[in-house]
Amino acid sequence: MLLEAREISFGYKKGYHILNNISFAAESSERVGIVAPSGFGKTTLCKILAGYSKPSNGQVLLDGEDVYGMKGYHPVQMIWQHPETSVNPRLRLKETIAEGDQIEQRIINALGIEHDWLNRFPGELSGGELQRFCIARALGQRTRFLIADEISTMLDMITQAQIWSFLLEETEKRKLGLIVVTHNTALAEKVCTRIQILTK
């Protein structure tokens, strides 16, 4: 599958754009690093790629189909920077994980998610534990692309290393496309097969 961003721009006000004319394409077997400085609008870009927001200009296409407005399970899944806001604090994790596709036990084990966690509320887990959970949740059978929006900046080095080595293996195995949006060039070089650097 091919995920393609065609000259996308984004702005809340007319004439003032946060993102300007960004284009790139990624195959679902690739790991593409998008490196941009702080304050670039990385989260906005991720939301557009994952079909959460509609770009002011341009389109994001998945095999020719516009990702914005796709119904049902979305083949392009995004993992957010802050896991605390990505899960409903009122629901136990098992209720949250049941929202998407069935997640293979293999993935849950590989991420070190203990069965007991699923009976808990998000407030009873640490940030690192929650982020593992969010990664597992995004890896349903129908997922083709993963967009990672600075998913490890708030975590300690060991957890970062754990998460990335897992994602490398998993994307390799399932031929998933991985788009790593980060400010950290070293990380992108370590993880990705190809890097695109965006500047203002």
């Binding site: 994952a50 079909g51 959460y52 049902g72 399970y73 979305h74 899944q77 995004m78 957010w80 802050h82 806001t85 990505s86 899960v87 409903n88 949250t96 929202e99 998407g100 596709d101 949740r137 349903g140």
Partner: peptide
């Protein structure tokens, strides 16, 4: 809220 948006993308 991100979790509401995510739920939508999970179908």
């Amino acid at each position: 809220a991100p979790y509401v948006k995510i739920a939508k993308k999970l179908g």
